[in-house]
Amino acid sequence: MSATTRREWLLSDTPSSRSQARWGRRYQLWLAFRRNWLAVAGLAVVVLMLLLAIFAPLLATHDPGAQQLANRLQPPSAEHWLGTDELGRDSWSRLLYGGRVTLGMVVAVVALVAPLGLIIGCVAGYAGGMVDKVLMRVTDVFLAFPRLILALAFVAAMRPGVESAVIAIALTAWPPYARLARAETLTIRNTDYIAAVRMTGASPWRVIWKHVTPMCMPSLTVRVTLDMSSIILTAAGLGFLGLGAQPPIPEWGTMIATARRFILEQWWVPVIPGIAIFTASLAFNLLGDGLRDVLDPKQR
């Protein structure tokens, strides 16, 4: 199929199959998204960073754990592209492997948090009454704690490490999603199209799962993307405080924490992971803004 006929197939007003309708809709969204070049840049950076993290073993020039104490705190050079840290480890390689840990944590948190918040919010909003009250009060309890403090307490009670950090962040990150999903559900559940679905005799679970959650997804996706940066920062913060990834595992926050002593003389050592955190956060934010313009029906 040539490019023009594929485009016509996608933009057809009269799709002839389920998949054509679905892909046509996606293509329309993509066309709208493409118009916002900042968002496209954000997407490109995010994809690039994920690729770098995934292919870290191929791209790394050194073993991220290998120490060369003779070569401590070297500035960037042909041998060490981004210099070396206080134990003579190659910063470029550590940055790549650190991306695996940091971005992996973010993905893990989102994978835990988004479905949890979505289900709790949709069930609370759709069921109403006692169910709603109980679920929302639980949400309020979690919401009442400052995020980092609760995570700190949780990690302190458990063994510090990547897994506990992920669980700790997840624990504090889901309530806003639950609130958002509930608010959306409250408006959706009184619409005629939900009444019409109820009239088909579908069970409440089916109504929530097949008809309510798809309507909540766009705003939730946007919110998640915008939250990614704050999750990265929390993960880095925990790492910085020594409660996240433990040395010698490379993680961007931990890398800054251990190198902060050298900020004045060998500034590039802490600044490089700092730039990585900054770039990732910014990219996710730009992507989130772009997605909101495209997906959020209230803004259109």
Partner: peptide, 17 residues
């Protein structure tokens, strides 16, 4: 028993074919 609603804009799920 089935029902037809007043507003055809509102009674069809906007994300479904």
């Amino acid at each position: 028993v089935q029902m037809v609603f007043q507003d055809p804009y509102g009674s069809l799920h906007p994300r479904q074919t």
